[in-house]
Structure formats: C-alpha cells, structure tokens
Amino acid sequence: MSSATSTAENKQAVKKQSQLKEIWRRLKKNKIAVIAMFVIIFLVLIAIFAPLIAPYSYETQDVMRPLEGPSRDHILGTDRLGRDVFSRLLYGAGQSLQMGFTAVLGAALLGIIIGSIAGYYGGWLDNLLMRILDIYQGIPMFLLTVTLAAVLGPSLQNAILAIGIALVPGNARFMRACILTVREMEYIEAAKSINCSVRRIIVSHIIPNAIPPMIVSVTMGLGFAVLSGAMLSYIGLGAQPPTAEWGAMISDGRNYLRSEPQLALYPGLCIMVSVLAFNLFGDGLRDALDPRLKT
C-alpha cells in the first residue's frame, strides 16, 4: 500500500517537474519576457548591493555643489542638497522593490486565504465575505490607499500596509473565481467519483490549478504596487527623507523642473522601466502558463 502511494507521488512529482520544465521552455521562447526577467533580476541585485556599488551614500551631501549637472565626480549630477543622484537612484531600487514585493505578497497571501474560504465553503460565509469586499471596493482604490497611509501616519511601512490592504479584495475575488471555475471542472467530479477526500481534492487538485493564474495576477500586481508606492512617496506619505525613493525624488525635483528637469526625469524613468519589466514578465508568464490565453 505504502509503496503504491509513494510511486504515485513520485509520478506526480515527475509530472509536476515536467510541467514546470514545459512552462520554462515556453517562457524562454518569449524573448521579451526573458529580457524583462533579466531586468527584474538586475533591479533586485542593485537593490541588494546598492551600498557596495553606489559611489556615495544616499545621504552624503556635497554641500558646496548642489544642483550640478553630470561631472566626473557625480555622473548624473547632484540634487538640491548636493547629494549624488546616481547613488540615490541605486538606493531607490531597494525602496521601490521592497514596497512592491511586501505589499503584493502580503495582499496575495491574505487574498488567497479569504478567497479560498469564500470559494470553497460558499453559502452565507461566501456571501458575507463578498459583501465586505464590495464595501471595500466601493471606495475608489487610490483614495483608500492614500487615506489609510495618511491616517496610519506617513512612513514606508504604513505605505506598504495601505497598498497591501487596497490590493486584498482584488486578490480574494480572483482566487475565489479560480476556485469556483476549478470546482466546476469535470476532473473534480472525476476525483469525487473515485471517493477522493475533500481535503485531498483541495490540496492536490484545486490549489495547484488555481495557483498559476494567481501567480500571473500577483506579478501584474507588482507593477501596480510600485506605481502606488511611488505615488504615495510623491505626496509625502511613503518613504520619508532622507531616504532615497524614486517617487520622493521626483517630488524633490519638481521645484527645479525648469532649470534641472533631469532631477524629476531620471527617477521617473527608473519607475517606468521597473513597472514595465513587471508587466512584460507577467504577460510572458501568463502566456507560458496557459498558451490558450495567448492573444
């Protein structure tokens, strides 16, 4: 008996491995997605090693040389306090990624739990949870994020919390919809017919099938979270000075829009490139996971 189960599990493991391989193979063929993936890896490396590669610290002030153009000492110039723009951009990657990943992963986890409960149990519980989400979603999303961030007090952690909370309802609904679709599939019927236990059905059929679309949605959410984070920092509700954060840097630069437009330009470009990378990678991942969805 035990040997039979273990071979079955082995087989499943083999199947899963080959499935992953197949997804990886399809993903590799999508050149744009691969480039996006490298951009993301590059950003993560910058975020981790910023203190080592940045020529200056994010708060070192070259007081005698504020608002300078590019020079040998400061390849992208300095800001109003004489801080090295290039170094601050490198440090900023960490802030943005931290905001993006933490908020999205937290929201995904909470969303998965709520969505699974609602989708699996159904009935009044589902109804109750969905009505609560309706209420949350009745408040325009960005308004909710900003209000929460402000009420909780301006800081990076609270900004993350605010972004995460605003993302939960979407994730929960998505997970619930996935579970409902999977539940209606015939192979679940088939599993029931061979007397598979409820728990086993959830663990070995419903979740594995609902996870891939969830991963795609989470990847797409990363871009959104980075954008929201930048927006919060721009209005002063995210990372606080002197921390280097791209949105806050744009905010700093807007007073010098006429004379030093690069101060607002560079951090914006950084935000755009990272969000673009997340979106492109998400697109590629979606196509790789389910080629039928490819458009």
């Binding site: 927006m231 744009i250 829009l257 437009p261 607002a264 914006g268 935000i271 755009m272 979106n279």
Partner: peptide
C-alpha cells in the same frame, strides 16, 4: 500602451508641464 500604463501619471504630468 504597455509603456503608457507603466508610467507614473504624476511623472507624465510633470513632463508635460516641462
């Protein structure tokens, strides 16, 4: 369209102002 959705709207606004 992908580039446009990846752009922070406040940044675009500042660029337009500039």
């Amino acid at each position: 369209t992908l580039i446009l959705v990846s752009m922070p709207s406040f940044w675009l606004a500042l660029l337009l102002v500039r």
